[in-house]
Every structure is written in C-alpha cells, then in structure tokens.
Design a protein around this nucleic acid. Structure first.
Lengths: 269, 269
DNA sequence: ACCAATGGTTCAAATAATGAACCGATAAGA
DNA sequence: TCTTATCGGTTCATTATTTGAACCATTGGT
C-alpha cells in the first residue's frame, strides 16, 4: 500500500460516533506507528483534510471537504439531481425516499426526501452509513456487484443491527438471484425495527453498480398494493437516475413495467 | 514535501473552469513525472477523491468528498450556522451576504444569502474562489494575518479582476492598518464591476483569522447611511460567528458599537 | 508523589517513490 | 496512406522518503 493510501485511510476512522480522534488512538486504530501517524496527520492537516481543534489535541475532519465537495457538486451535480428525483418519488409513493452511494464496502447517504400527508414517517440521518447486508439498498447493490466483491463482503463478520437482521452469509447469498430477477431488494426491519423498505440499484457508465434508490415505510403501513406501487416507482426512479447520470443498466436488468395508463397502444399489436 | 502532500496538491488543480484533467496535463501542471502522477492519481482514485469518467480518460474530483463533507458538517456544522447568521444579516441590511473561509492563499465560499425587497442584487456562485487582494473579504483576512503570510501573498503577481482592482502590493499593504483600526475592509468594484462590499474577519480558537463575513451591494445603491449601517452589522455578525464557533478575536480587535437603542444605561455612568 | 496516559521528536535502517525510456493506441496532418 | 505527435499507462535501477523503537515533556488521575 502506498503512503498516500495509508494517509487517506486514516480519514475513514472518523465517524458520526467518533468525530474526534487523538494521535495515539489513531495510531492504534490504523495500526501505524505513532511517529508515522503524526506525520501523516500533519500532511492531511496541511491540506485541511483534518484539523486539530486546539494544538496538541484531538484531530477531526477538516474544512477542505466543504470546498471540494462544493466544487465536485458544481461539476457533477449528483446530490442535486438525486434530491430532485427523490422529491417526486416521495410524492408518488407518499413515503420517505433515499439514495445512497457505494463507498468501499458500505453505502453512504447522498440525499433523502420526506413525503407529506402522514403522521408517521421513516426518519433519515445525514452522513449515515449503511451496511450492505442489513439494508434493502445494500442488498440491491450487492446483487449487482461482481462475485469477488460479494465474497469479500460476505466473508466478514456480519453484525446484526436489529433482531431481524439476516447475518447468515449463505442466506443472503441465496436471496440475491431473486433480487436480480426483479431488480428490487426488500428489507423488513433489518436496519431499523419497524421499517419496511424496497430498493433498486443505480449503475454507472461502465454498468457497474454505484448505489441504490430506496423507499421506506413504517412496517405497519405496508400493504400488498402499496408494495406493488412502490416497487414499480422505485425501479423506474433508479433507471431514470442511472440514465440521468450517464450510466447504463447491465443488459440483464429487468425492464420497468409499462405505465398503467398506456399512452399509445398501436405499436403493441 | 511529503508524498501525501504531493498527491493532495493535485486536487487543487481542479477548478470550476477546469473540472476535468488528463494524466499528461496534470503531470505538466503539477510538475511531477507522469509515472508518479499516475500512481498518485491512482491512490486518490482508490479512496474516491478523484475518479475517471471512463477508464483511460480524464480525471475529476470524486464522490468521497460528498460523504466526508457531510460527516464534517455533521460534526462541525459551520455551513449551517453560517447560513443562519447570513440570513438574518441579509434581512438586517437588505443586501446580499456572504461568508468565506481561508484555504491556502485564497478564500472559498462557504455560504451566502440573498435579501428580499430589491429588484437588483449581487449574485453569488457556489464553490467560488476569491483572491485575497481583490475582495473586501480578502483584505479583511489579510489585515489580520501574520506578517509572513502577508508578504508571501503580496510577493506574488496580483492579477486585476476588473479595471478597479488594486494590484500594487504597497498600496494594498498601506491600506491594512486602516482596516485593523476599524475591523472592516471595503472593496468597490475590485472583484466584480458595480459591486460595493464591506467585510469583517472571523477568528478561530487560537485567534488566527479563518475567514470573513461580507455584505455586498450594487455600487449605485450604496449611501453613507447604508454603509454605516452595514459596517456595524457586518462587524457584529463576524464577532457573533467567531464566538459561535468557539473562536476569539485578537485583543486589539475593535469592540462593536453599542446598539443604537441601549437596553440598560446604568452601568455606563 | 507517583503512575500511566497523552502529543510530539529523533535518527539509522528499511522501504517506497522516482523518472527516463518505453509501449500500444488514437488522432491529426501531409 | 504514411508520418508525426499526442495520449494513458508501464517498467526498473537509482534515489530519497518513510518507518519505528526509544526517547522527551506534559497532563490528569490515584
């Protein structure tokens, strides 16, 4: 592993649960000598990727991310387009919608939108990280990932977020073909209790899966008819986002249902 | 310079004007051998700090910034608090407000807010970069920066954004003491024609200047009374932001005007 | 007063970065 | 069509950087 990769890997130890990390602790977490850790953090700090809240104290993520994220979004407005789509999807389904991107072996929340009209809804968090095995989005992504990647992910210890999280690698692996036939993954209470969600994968320019769109409802509200409606809309939205970002679904990806109200029937014969 | 710094320095060549950079071009820009550049870009890409739009093509900033910026904002909600303050400042002054952070030797836009009630206003851009010598914000920051930093900045060739940009280092240097006595910097048409702006510095925990708050109006709208009002409000806002972020103004920093309507006069005597 | 942490530093030994030359592919010009 | 000049990417002996055990100085808890 190159030195730069080592330095960047330090950034991944920051999380919502642990926003501040000291030198010694970082050294331990990363398994890197304290002197080296110190130098690497120093170089990251020079660029503003980390900062010390006070000299001789803990480190945290730095302000450079704000600048570069704004620039990235300016060049490639993923969040903006995702958010616009999620808003209409939330309107169409009347439920909370969510889009996440694959980053390493987890998903990170890109955007989400709430729907009006219900007293209860599924709440989302900014900067939330989703595990691949415990969420509908994760399963959707996993189903369309290369076999080697799937093996890699499933070989690790799978933690149970809730009592209903499936943690048996073989059970999960066995569920993937079904996802591939429909293009839709489901999770009932796997990540949060009382949340029922459907997700569909989004693909990049090389047809690799880069993330997923999901719709989440309280379990008590989900019915067969609502599920059918959601599945149709989430699949269509995911395809729309794939196209909007210049991506291509793999050739085997299921075609979306034709709209219930056919605009023109002449070509069907 | 360490390897990591070298790799990170590549990121600074991406800009709004040049969002895509090829391998050879990056190698030339950075003055780094092509093989090394390739390896460094590869490591950055592994972490998602850059990505190739298609394999064997140009590079651009990567999606990891979205994730880490969200996490940073979650931990240290600078943009959010800045935006809230800018909104009230825009209300108070009736003009466009703006906050930027010092990053290296330039300012980068953190947030801005527009005011209601006017047919014309000063327009802001996301991810915009402001030079220190040509903007009121930049001058405010420069006035409160260490002498060595000032020398460094002023020793470089200063480009004229408009016909009214001051580019003589000594003229600029001579204007700094005046800024330090009032805590306010002014720019008339220095960055954009027809823009008149006032700015005040914001300080970090170690009393170092980290950025500036500014109010910008069309030149035609600025009057003496409006200027007085704006200067008072922008100074108060900058101090408020400094405190809100846990920073401290340097001891020599001017105290804000007492509010025009004194709440209590007993202590004055 | 003590101990065990912390952040930070030193310097010879080990390791990773470097860069000129090279390859195959693509595109433009003659 | 042939030539030339790019491009992205790779190779490998030389070189410079990174590494890590041991070392401070400080801090905070017992």
């Amino acid at each position: 592993m190159g030195t730069t990769s080592k330095a960047l890997s330090l950034l991944d130890f920051f999380s919502r649960a642990q926003p501040l990390i000291g030198l010694s602790q970082m050294s331990r977490l990363a398994g890197i000598n304290k002197a080296s850790t110190h130098r690497l953090l120093g170089e990251l700090a020079d660029f503003g990727l980390v900062e010390q809240v006070t000299p001789g104290r803990e480190y945290r993520l730095g302000p450079a991310f704000l600048r570069l994220a704004a620039l990235r979004e300016q060049n490639v407005p993923m969040r903006e387009t995702a958010y616009a789509l999620l808003e209409t999807l939330a309107d169409e389904t009347g439920e909370t919608t969510h889009m996440s991107l694959l980053q390493g072996e987890v998903l990170s929340t890109l955007a989400y939108a709430y729907a009006d009209g219900h007293g209860t809804l599924v709440r989302m968090e900014d900067a939330e990280v989703l595990s691949l095995h415990a969420t509908s989005s994760g399963l959707a992504v996993l189903a369309y990932s290369p076999p080697g990647f799937i093996d890699e992910v499933l070989s690790k210890r799978l933690t149970a977020r809730t009592s209903q999280t499936k943690t048996d690698p073989e059970v999960i692996r066995a569920s993937l073909p079904q996802i591939r036939t429909t293009g839709i993954a489901v999770s009932i209470g796997g990540f949060e209790e009382d949340v029922h969600s459907y997700a569909a994968p989004v693909f990049g320019a090389n047809s690799a899966c880069i993330g997923a769109v999901a719709v989440a409802t309280p379990v008590s509200r989900m019915t067969d008819t609502l599920a059918t409606h959601i599945k149709g809309r989430v699949l269509a939205s995911a395809l729309q986002l794939t196209r909007g970002w210049g991506g291509f679904p793999p050739s085997a990806f299921p075609k979306p249902e034709p709209e219930p109200i056919p605009h023109q029937s002449s070509k069907r014969a």
